[in-house]
Nucleic acid binder design. Structure first.
Lengths: 193, 193
DNA sequence: TATTGTTATACTCTATAACTATA
DNA sequence: TATAGTTATAGAGTATAACAATA
């Protein structure tokens, strides 16, 4: 989440000329704006004569990794601001939320679910515990494991935090219709799940 | 891109029950699989009785930031492997690609376009230059600025690197139809552009 | 005065190896 | 032997402040 000094973004807004054809399900309209003078997208463009004012990043914009990362960072930037009052960063939030919705979950399960590494979770858990947001209870079946539970204080915090997160996300995706938002979530999950 | 020791991922594949309605454009089908017994998505679910085996992350899956980040990391993980032979990490790749497509682009422009901070670009540029992949030439109009150009060696490298990146991306998005892929790119850009 | 590029530096995030205690 | 949790630590990534040269 790099906060820039104050750089004007010369990124051009593409006319998002996107169609699709398929089988069984209806879809969301992708171009609410009246299709503005659509510049031909260069599939293998020849370089800019000389990059004097505008910068062409049309190739990078064809890459899912690039677009997903840029979108994620854009959202996370606002997330950090809005969730700072709760003392929660994205990973803290994910961990607290998962514990809240899965009482007794173990560190091992958290790592697998959220794709974290065990050593990096240790300090995080200790911090949440020392803040009184979670409790560690012995695991019923496995003597090695420890069950994690949100305290009433932690639960109350997360009700607010999740509400804030959801609101912020709706703001950040304001250019999307609810249908498009739903579509986007489902398509992203097809990549990483 | 956290590489796990070898954890079985208890993440459940959602039935991606996604519909959409809208106005002017056709869309891609979101559910190629024969709609499998669809579990009710909990909008504000009550916690798992006890997280013994499976972990419920349905709330996080409603967050764009979470999904975008997970998808991005999933792609970047493979990106790192496949682009390692070229000595390029994601940011190096973005910078080289942008220079290649925009001869004479300045550091300042790169920062604005790729959302990087100037101090972090310095070492990166120096590294690319010392590898003989780019050249720095005086800017025609501005004595302070330096124009960046890809050398023939750098150009040749990037032809291969971009081909590799595009291939890897198609692999990672194999569960998506071309139409869905196009849709996804356009929707992501609506968030960060 | 404002901007480009740079240095130095601090802070955070992520990754690896190795240990312990339980199974 | 394998796994859950932990420790210590290294490395990469990202951030801020301040400076010189040019506009």
């Amino acid at each position: 989440m790099p906060r820039q000094p104050a750089p004007p973004r010369p990124l051009k807004t593409p006319g998002s000329e996107v169609t699709a054809s398929g089988a069984s399900v209806q879809q969301a309209p992708l171009d609410p704006q009246p299709a503005k003078a659509r510049r031909a997208r260069a599939p293998r463009a020849k370089p800019n004569a000389l990059a004097l004012d505008t910068v062409d990043s049309s190739y990078l914009q064809t890459l899912m990794g690039y677009n997903a990362r840029r979108a994620a960072l854009s959202i996370i930037e606002l997330f950090l601001e809005r969730l700072a009052p709760y003392g929660l960063k994205p990973v803290d939030f994910s961990v607290m939320s998962t514990i809240g919705h899965n009482p007794g979950v173990t560190s091992r399960q958290l790592c697998a679910t959220l794709n974290l590494l065990p050593p990096n979770l240790v300090g995080l858990i200790q911090s949440l515990e020392s803040r009184g947001l979670i409790e560690r209870k012995p695991h019923p079946h496995d003597g090695r494991a420890v069950g994690l539970h949100a305290t009433p204080k932690g639960q109350a915090l997360m009700v607010q935090a999740e509400r804030t997160a959801t609101e912020l996300e709706i703001e950040k995706t304001a250019k999307l219709t609810p249908a498009q938002r739903k579509t986007l979530l489902a398509l992203l999950q097809k990549i990483y799940l």
